[in-house]
Design a protein around this nucleic acid. Sequence first.
DNA 1: CACGATTGATAGGTTTTCCCTATGGACCTT
DNA 2: AAGGTCCATAGGGAAAACCTATCAATCGTG
Lengths: 298, 298
Amino acid sequence: MDLRQVRYFIAVAEERSFTLAARRLHLSQPPLSQHIQALEAELGTQLLYRTSRKVELTQAGEAMLLRGRAILQQVKSAEDEVRSIGAGLIGTLDLGATGSILRGRLAELLAAYRQVAPLVRMTVHEQAPALQIAALLNRTTNISLIRGIPGERDLTSKLAWREEVVLAVSRSHRLAQRKRIALGELASEDHVILDPNSSDFARYVQTCCVDAGFLPKVSQQVVDAQSIPSLIAAGFGVALVPQSIARFTTADIVFRPIRPSPPAADVFLVFREDETSMVVHNFIKLALRYLSQRKRLG
Amino acid sequence: MDLRQVRYFIAVAEERSFTLAARRLHLSQPPLSQHIQALEAELGTQLLYRTSRKVELTQAGEAMLLRGRAILQQVKSAEDEVRSIGAGLIGTLDLGATGSILRGRLAELLAAYRQVAPLVRMTVHEQAPALQIAALLNRTTNISLIRGIPGERDLTSKLAWREEVVLAVSRSHRLAQRKRIALGELASEDHVILDPNSSDFARYVQTCCVDAGFLPKVSQQVVDAQSIPSLIAAGFGVALVPQSIARFTTADIVFRPIRPSPPAADVFLVFREDETSMVVHNFIKLALRYLSQRKRLG
DNA sequence: CACGATTGATAGGTTTTCCCTATGGACCTT
DNA sequence: AAGGTCCATAGGGAAAACCTATCAATCGTG
C-alpha cells in the first residue's frame, strides 16, 4: 500500500466518481482507475462498486476510507512534528546565568524568544559562572550567558552585548563628585569584589587593577553582583562593576565611568561546540538577531 | 512523504548505517542515500548526522523514527482490517430460521462457521417463515433457512439440504404397524398441521394432500413444527412433517415414510439477490460446501 | 426509440522516476 | 603510508506513472 494510492482512493470515495476525483487530483482519469485497481488487487478485495453511471463503496471500501483518512492525518501530524523539531520550535532548553544577567537583559530576551517558540520548555539555572561552565561541559545546560570568553576548548562564545566596567561609590564618597575616574586612582580605596574563585570576570577585573599598578584592597567579597550596591551604600568602599548593575542601584549610590581605557564587561553566549539541538541553534540565531536590533535599547 | 521513504528511513535509523540498511532492503546503497536526502529535503530538516564512519539520529530523526513506526503499524492494521472485511471475516450476520431448523442442522452449521469466522457477530432471528421473508426484504436479516423456494423476485435460493415429508403417528395408532404409507390413505385421519398463514411449506403440504384426493381434516394447528410430536403423542391424530422433526420425538411416536412419491421438505438458503455483504457471500459459500460434505451425516 | 453525452476501462506511446554500476572523497585502521 | 570502509555523486538503463485516444455501457432527451 502506498500513500499516493490512499490519497487517490479517498478522492474517489469522497467524490463518488473517478472523473471528478481525477480532476481534483490534477490527474487524468485512466491512471486513477489503474491505481485503484492496483490497490484492490493488493488488498485482494473490491473497494468500489462501479457501474458506468455511479460509484459506490463496498463495506471494505468504507473501512478503507476511514482508515485512510486516519493514516493521512497521522502522516501529516508526523510531518509537522518533525518539521517543528528540525526548526528548533519543539524541545527543551536549559540556560545558565547569574542572577544579575538573568534579571537584567536576559529576561527580555527570554520573553522575546518565548513568543517565537512557545512550545520550547525553558529552564534557567541561576548559578555562579564557574558552575555554569561545568554545567555546559557535563551537558546539564545548553547555553550560558557569561561575562568574558571561557578558555575551554569544547565551548564556543558569541558576543551578546557590550558593556564596560564602571565604578560604584556611595553618594557621600569623595569620588562621587568626580565626572570620570582613572583606574590608578583606586589604589588606596577599600574594594567590594566578586569571588574570584567562581568568576573569570572577577579575576579579569583584578588583572586590570594590577595592570594599573595596584592590587585592590578587599573589604568585602560576594558571589552575586546584585549584592554590591547595598554594600557600597553601607560604606564598604568602592566597587568595579558591570554598568548594567545600575539596574539594581538604590538612591544612595552613584556610578562613574572609568576613563581612560575602561575594562570590558561584555556578555557572551556560550555553548558547546558539538551542540546538536536545533532548539539551541535556533535560540542563538534568534538571540543574536534580537540583541543586535536592540543594541541601543535595554 | 512516501511510505517507501518511511520504510527506508526506519531501516537506516535502526541499522545506523546506509550500507547495512540497503542490504536489509535488498537495494543498493546509492538510491537509499537519495531517498533519505529527498525525505530530509521535503521535511526541511536533517534527520541524520552522517560522517563517513557512523550515522546518528538528530532529534528530528528520533521523532521521525517513532512516528514512522507508528505509521507503518497503522497501515498494516488498516490493510489487515480491509482484507478481513473484504474476505467476509469481519462484520455482522443476521440469520432467520424456525426453531426446528435452528435447533436442528443449523446449529451445527453455525458452529462450523464460527470456527472459520470467529470475528463475525451472528444473530439468529427465530420466527415463522412468512416473517423471515419480510425480514429479508426489509434488510433486517441477511439470510434465512426456509423449506421451499419463496416466490419473491428479489430473493435468491440455494438448496441447503434435502428432506422429505414423513408421517408422524402415535405408536398405538393403527398406521404405526405399517412400513410405508401412501398419501391417499390419510384422507380420513385427524391432522395436526402447521399454520398455513405463516408457512409456504404448510400450504405446500396441503396442496399435496389435495393432489392425493383429499382435504386434510385439521384437529390442531401449530406455528412451530417442534410442537407437533407431543401433540401426536397426546392423541391428536397424525401429522405430515419434515423427517428432521424426528430429532424432537418422544418414545411414544413413530415416523413412517410416505410411498410412493413423498412430498419434498427440502431446506433452502434464501438471501437478497443484491446482497453486497461479503460476510453473507462467504457464509453462503462455506455453508454450501460444508453441507455438501456432510450430506450423509447429521 | 434513437441519438448524444457521460462514465469507467483499456491500449499505446512518452515522460518521469527509480535503481543499478562505477567512482570519488573522507576517515579509520594497520 | 596504505588499504579498507563508509556515504555521496554521476551516468545509463529499466520500470513506473502519466497522457491522449478510444471503447463499451448507460442515462437522458428529443
